[in-house]
Simulated scan of single mutants.
Amino acid sequence: MHSIFHLKRQDRIGWIGLGEMGYRMAGNLQRYLVSRSLSMTVWNRTPAKSAKMHQKHGVRVAKSLEDLVAQSNIIFTSLSSDAAVEEIYETLIYLAGLVDHSIIFVESSTIYPGLATKLKERLAVTPQHTYLQCPVFGRPPVAKAAKLVWVTSGDEKAIKKMCLYFTTMSKSIIHLKTTNVASACSFKLIGNFFVVGSMKLLAEGFTLAEKADVSQESVLKFVKAFFPAPSWIEYSQKMVKGGAASKENGFSVDLGLKDVGHMRQLAAETGASLPTADLAYNHLQAVKESGKSDQDWSSMISALRVSSDLDAEAVATAAAVASVRSSPYIPNSPLHQK
């Protein structure tokens, strides 16, 4: 038992990305590390977030990515987009080739499968390092409560070592038991498809209730009683409030478009039909084109309300709905833009 604890004491953890998810995840991990007389080093593109993390949780703030790599043998990344992940890993992979110690990289973002494969292959040039693709399910409040669902893919031995740390941030772990890191990305997109599909279903139901003069509050009570899933209740409450909820503690329209775009591209590449994602993408795009991309993605209901003549003031949204309805658009992965 003593030797295992000693091994964990040798871990030097680095964290990159302190957005709404990363900040809360890193905070939970840091609390565990402090309880074991350990700590972590953090780096964020916005220095103020690193400073806040230091003040609240006592983490060490890296002077640069070079400093973080030199100080860490485990590095978590939690970033908002494929472009950000590719940019950060371009530097990390270069720096990893300059150090003598081995590093386990744990990438937890929602990215396109091909990008994960590309990063693993590039890192394999320096074989002492390991790349794991381990995305998470859950919104910021879930991350804060340490009740995320982790998904693992990559080297089995490295994953076994990391599970101790994953449990400090989650309620459960789904092991895909594969070294194919693209599988975890596909899994995350499928999971997010269930989320956006459910959200679209709720949006249509609440819109129909409004048109039929049925109390939305009564429908909300039905959802709570018959479909008591936390996500269904949360999105239903946002929609009943008008579908214009802030992205704070949520998921913005822009990020929703990124994820749904990835789902549609994966469907196109695999020959699957995903009409629900096509419709959800169009509604989200309409909300974005009306200037509301900073809202929570549950605001897709506003596009449905416009097309149902329930929002006379949203002329811009109505025009956007009309413009995207005729020609669905599947965005290219960042991998194909270079």
Rank of each mutant, 00 (worst) to 15 (best):
H2N: 14
L7S: 14
R9G: 15
Q10H: 12
Q10S: 15
I13H: 04
W15Y: 12
I16K: 09
L18S: 04
M25L: 11
L29R: 02
Q30N: 10
R31P: 01
R31T: 12
S35C: 07
S39E: 07
S39K: 08
M40E: 05
N44H: 00
T46D: 04
P47V: 09
K52F: 00
M53D: 08
H54C: 13
Q55S: 15
G58C: 11
R60I: 12
Q71A: 15
F76W: 11
F76Q: 00
T77P: 02
S78Y: 01
S78L: 10
D82N: 06
I88P: 05
L92M: 09
L98W: 00
L98T: 13
V99K: 08
S108W: 04
S109K: 11
I111C: 07
Y112K: 08
L115T: 04
A116C: 04
K118M: 12
L119G: 06
P127V: 09
Q133H: 14
C134K: 04
P135H: 05
P135I: 10
P135R: 01
V136N: 03
F137W: 06
V142I: 14
V142F: 01
A145W: 00
K147I: 00
W150P: 01
W150Q: 08
S153Y: 09
S153C: 09
K157P: 05
A158I: 07
A158T: 09
I159C: 07
T168Y: 10
M169A: 06
M169E: 02
S170Q: 02
K171R: 13
K171L: 00
I174H: 13
K177T: 12
T178P: 09
V181C: 06
S186P: 05
F187M: 15
F194Y: 13
F194P: 04
M199F: 01
A203G: 01
K211R: 15
K211Y: 12
K211L: 15
E217T: 13
S218Q: 14
L220G: 10
V223I: 15
P230Y: 05
Y235G: 01
Q237N: 14
Q237P: 01
K238P: 01
M239V: 03
G242S: 08
K247W: 00
S252I: 04
V253C: 03
G256N: 07
D259L: 00
L266G: 07
A268G: 07
T270Y: 02
T270V: 02
T270M: 04
Y281F: 15
N282K: 15
H283Q: 14
A286S: 12
V287F: 03
V287R: 03
K288H: 13
E289R: 12
S293C: 06
D296M: 09
D296S: 08
W297T: 01
S299M: 04
S299W: 00
M300H: 10
V306H: 09
D309E: 14
T317F: 02
S327T: 15
S327E: 15
P328L: 09
P331R: 05
S333V: 02
S333Y: 09
L335N: 10
